[in-house]
Amino acid sequence: MMNKKVCLRYWISFLLLALLLVILVLWNVNSGSVSLSPREIVKILLYREGEDTALHIIWDIRLPRILSAIILGGALSVSGFLLQTFFGNPIAGPFVLGISSGAKLVVSLVMIFLLGRGILVGSGTMILAAFLGAMISMGFVLAVSHRVKRMSMLVVCGVMIGYICSAVTDFLITFADDSNIVNLHNWSLGSFSGLNWEHVSLMAAVVFITLFIVFFMSKPIGAYQLGEGYARNMGVNIKLFRLALILLSSVLSACVTAFAGPISFVGIAVPHLVKSLLKTAKPILVIPACFLGGGVFCLFCDFIARTVFAPTELSISSVTAVLGAPVVIYMMVRRQGKGM
C-alpha cells in the first residue's frame, strides 16, 4: 500500500548514491601523482598484473585509502544520525559536540606515552583509546545537556569542549619527541593517508558489526523520532535504547578518529543531505543511505584533498568543512526561520 511514487524515489536515490560511489571509486583509483592508463588499472585490478610500482600504488596505497574513506565516511555519517536522534536535533554530530576531539586527545596521549617508551601502537589500542576519549567527551556533553534546555547552548558547549581538547592535543604534540611529530601532526588534522590493508580489515570489522546492530535498531529509532513518551508507550526500553545510541555512535566516531583523525561536519551534513534526497527520515532507509552518502562525500572530499594542490595534500577536515559547513549553516538558518 506504499505509494508507488515514493517507492520509486527511494530506489532512484539508492541507485544514484551507488552510482556516485562507483564513479568516485574509479575516479580515485585513476588519479594521483603517478598517472596510469585505464587499461593498466583494469589489468592491475582484475588480474593483478603489471609493473611492480604500479601494482603497489594501486593495491597498497590507493585501494586501502579509497576503502577507508568509504567505510569511515559512512561510519561518521551514521554516527551523526544516531546523535541527532538521541538529542532530537539535526545539528548534533560527533564533531560539533566535541566527541571527535575528545577521542583525538586521548589517542594523542596514548601514542605519545607509548611511543616515548618505544612501544609500537597497534590499531586496536588506537580504537580503544579513541573510544575512551569519545566516551569522556560524551559524558561532559550529557552532563551539560541535563542542565541546559536549549540545543544551541549544548552545541556551543560541545564546540568549547572540542577547542579545549584540540588545544591540549596541539600542546602535547608540540612537546612530543621529534621522530613521531610529523606522523602525529598529520593525523591530528585528519587524513586518510597512510592506511594499509590491516587497518582496513580492522575498521571494516568494527564498523560493519556496529552498523549491523544499528540497522536492527531502526525500528526503535523510528519510534523515538516521535519523542520519548510515544517510544516508551510503544514498549521501547528507553534507558537501554539511549545507552545503546550513545555507545554505538561513540564506537563509530571513535573508530573514525583512531584511523583518520577528526573529520568535521560530515556527521551533520550527510544525514541532512540524505534525508532531503529521500524526503523521509525513516531510519531503515536513512541508515544505509547515510552510509553510502558518507562514503560518497568523503571519497569526493579526499579526492579534492589529494589532487587540488598535488603534490601537497590538504587535511581532509579542511575540505569537509568547506563543503559541509555551508550545509550546516543553511540548516540552522532554515530552522531559525521556522521559529524553532
Binding site: 539535526p90 523520532q225 516521535l226 519523542g227 513518551g229 510515544y230 508507550n233 510503544m234 514498549g235 534525508k275 524526503k279 523521509t280 527520515a281 524553532m340
Partner: peptide, 16 residues
Amino acid sequence: ARRLAVVMTERIRPEL
C-alpha cells in the same frame, strides 16, 4: 502497547 495507547500533550515535530 497492544492494550494501551497514549496521546500526549507535548507537541511533537518529527522531521520529514
